[in-house]
Design a protein around this nucleic acid. Structure first.
Lengths: 213, 213
DNA sequence: TCTAAATGTGATAAACCCTCACATTTGCAA
DNA sequence: TTGCAAATGTGAGGGTTTATCACATTTAGA
């Protein structure tokens, strides 16, 4: 037989640093690499980002880049992970003290606004979440993130509607959250005016789902 | 100065056939190319699809491939366009005779089911719409498609709620439609049971938006 | 001071996409 | 039928990019 077994690149493989920087020196260099990548993504998008450019801008050899990141996707992934960690903290904070329907309305509404502004202002985040669907590792990160955020919502919902079926609450929260991300992506890819309308419509729809009516 | 002006590939450029096949012979060959591409995408995804493989499987030289498609994305785009044309016809058909709220409920519900089954069964469509965000031409195609489909919905809504603000109806229809696509993408990337729940939840949410409550 | 581990380097292999100069086939007017 | 221009077909090779690896340098700590 002797089939070609060229080991197709396993897209699912976790994109973790191939070597974690243990010395101060290398930790700083890794920061520079990430900063360079971030800047390049902001300028041209992650697809057009070239490993050589990242190395050059970080004042590092291409070899050093691959010392800490197994491949190109791993760099994007590392940036995405930072964003998710940050935003989860923010979301958890915003929702943790919600006690009644009115409070949820307030908090959720603010959260949507914050996210929208973030999407409008952060080219890197925008680019990364756009490419999310094409990359298995990124998609999984986003799903996990979305589930975690939905969990914060579920906690609130359980307090507000203790009689409701937990599975249904989970489903609704997860769906509402994912739709929010979809709405943001949509909103930023049309003109500003329509985007605003779409976000407002989403907000209304989501609140109807979350607090009953 | 003498900057490098390597003409970054203009991702926005329309991906139309570089030469339309005018003879019967070449039209058949183009069909073979598309069929080969479709099969390869089904097997490994459009990202992993190699132009050489497409040519080989279509029993055509690599040069012939590029005679009719300016680049790799153009092949994917051509397949995507076929799908949208087909599905638009189906959607238009399903919605055209809707006269009252109950009819809309019925028709929309069936439409969602059909789409869901399609997403579950069609690896090619799935892959193409997944990659949609990363490719400008594809994103535009999907947006245009979504708008067109939303238009069918708007037509129905205008009949059912003649007093409502047209702009708001447009917004709602567009949003509901886009969320449907997002819900499908989400549903197929989790296990079947949860996927079913999510689609059902989406359906309920969408109907509440469309027919009032 | 000395050594093993950590880190740094860049030429180069490997994989792809796409072009181009040239060959072949087709449609059709004379 | 013949001749010819347009359409179509071909695949070796150019150019770009990702990623590797053998070797050089630096660091931590015994």
């Amino acid at each position: 037989m002797d089939e070609k077994v060229t080991a197709k690149p396993d897209q699912a493989a976790v994109a973790s640093p191939r070597r974690s920087p243990s010395q101060q020196r290398s930790r700083e260099r890794v920061e520079r690499m990430l900063a360079a990548a971030s800047a390049l993504i902001a300028e041209q998008g992650s697809d057009a980002m070239r490993m050589g450019e990242v190395a050059e801008r970080a004042e590092v050899s291409i070899g050093s880049l691959y010392q800490f990141f197994p491949d190109k996707r791993a760099i994007v992934w590392a940036l995405a992970e930072r964003y998710t960690a940050e935003s989860q903290a923010c979301i958890s904070e915003a929702l943790k003290d919600v006690g009644d329907a009115e409070g949820l309305k307030q908090a959720f509404s603010e959260l949507v606004d914050i996210y929208y502004r973030l999407f409008l202002a952060e080219p890197v985040m925008r680019d990364i979440w756009s490419g999310t669907q094409a990359d298995k590792a990124l998609r999984e990160l986003e799903l996990a993130d979305s589930r975690a955020n939905a969990e914060f919502l579920v906690a609130v919902l359980k307090r507000l509607r203790p009689a409701a079926d937990p599975v249904e609450l989970e489903t609704i929260a997860f769906l509402v959250w994912q739709m929010g991300e979809a709405a943001m992506r949509l909103a930023i890819s049309v003109d500003r005016e329509e985007g605003d309308r779409l976000v407002a419509a989403y907000k209304a729809m989501a609140l109807r789902e979350l607090v009953g009516e």
